[in-house]
């Protein structure tokens, strides 16, 4: 972990009168797992959308390896290596699993229209190479060989989340943004996903930014935790420090739901609704 790979500087984002993000600033260390937590509606997904370029903030900058990418279109950011999954699964329902994953590699492929129409030369070569690569690296790793030719709509929720991760990996990410990767999963699926995330971080040396409600997982695997509340960063630091921070406790208490807070901060039967 050295220089920050991604830096947010004073991001402010409003929807009409609603301020979803207010002066949000933090760094992501390269090679680390950074997790954003916060109550529902705190602005976590909005923050992700700002980083991917889908929302344009009114103020602030996003720096990628020190370079300002605030004005870059979403497809260009994907090409730079910003990959993400979505809180509400956003797979392409008309495609098979393998085609969904292949789509992730879109910006790295060169096939032009004419070559695609004749499917000869580059188009064919590129497709076969891509297939090899996806099969040997991604499908193998995520253990989804058995579903590769199925339409995504026929898959269970847990598997769909896994295919979404596979598609993000096909982008060849420098940073992987995961919006609630284990929400709605059963225990076993959660453990699998946590293992994949750890492997990606440790063996693939991938930098990860994650939103997650499952506190057990957050505390277990995060190098850094950032707490958002009503669009503001109220604490950031090592997981253990943040957990003890009185501001954070208050924010969760402030949501008025003590049981919810217990559930979220309790290390035992944490659940990830959202």
């Amino acid at each position: 972990m050295s220089d920050p790979i991604l830096t947010l500087e004073g991001i402010t984002l409003s929807f009409g009168g609603l301020r979803a993000l207010n002066e949000v600033s933090f760094d992501m260390p390269e090679g680390g797992i950074t997790t954003v937590i916060g109550p529902n509606g705190a602005g976590k997904t909005s923050l992700f959308n700002t980083i991917s370029g889908f929302y344009r903030p009114q103020a602030g900058r996003v720096l990628f390896r020190g370079k300002d990418i605030s004005r870059l279109h979403p497809p260009k950011r994907a090409k730079l290596g910003l990959a993400r999954t979505f809180q509400n699964i956003a797979l392409f329902r008309g495609m098979t699993v393998i085609d969904n994953i292949k789509l992730g590699a879109h910006s790295h492929l060169q096939t032009g229209l004419l070559s695609a129409l004749v499917y000869f030369g580059r188009a064919r070569r590129e497709e076969l190479e891509l297939r090899e690569k996806i099969e040997s690296k991604i499908i193998d790793f995520l253990e989804i060989d058995h579903i590769r030719n199925l339409p995504v709509a026929s898959l269970s929720y847990g598997l769909q989340k896994r295919v979404e991760l596979a598609r993000a990996l096909a982008i060849g990410p420098e940073i992987l943004l995961l919006d609630e990767p284990v929400a709605g999963m059963n225990r076993e699926e959660k453990e699998d996903m946590a293992r994949f995330i750890l492997d990606l971080n440790q063996e693939w040396q991938m930098t990860i930014l994650m939103v997650e409600h499952d506190m057990e997982m957050v505390m277990d695997i995060s190098d850094k935790v950032v707490v958002l509340n009503f669009g503001e960063v109220i604490a950031q630091g090592k997981a253990a420090e943040v957990k003890e921070n009185p501001e954070v406790l208050k924010a969760y208490l402030g949501s008025g739901d003590v049981a919810d807070m217990r559930r979220r901060l309790g290390a035992e039967n944490a659940s990830g609704a959202g």
């Binding site: 279109h73 085609d99 992730g104 695609a116």
Partner: peptide
């Protein structure tokens, strides 16, 4: 090929297609 997939991606979910590089 990538072009056909991009077309379908635009049809199925144009916003996430854009974030994925289309």
């Amino acid at each position: 090929t990538r072009i056909g997939r991009a077309f379908i991606a635009v049809r199925d979910r144009d916003i996430s297609a854009e974030v994925l590089g289309v």
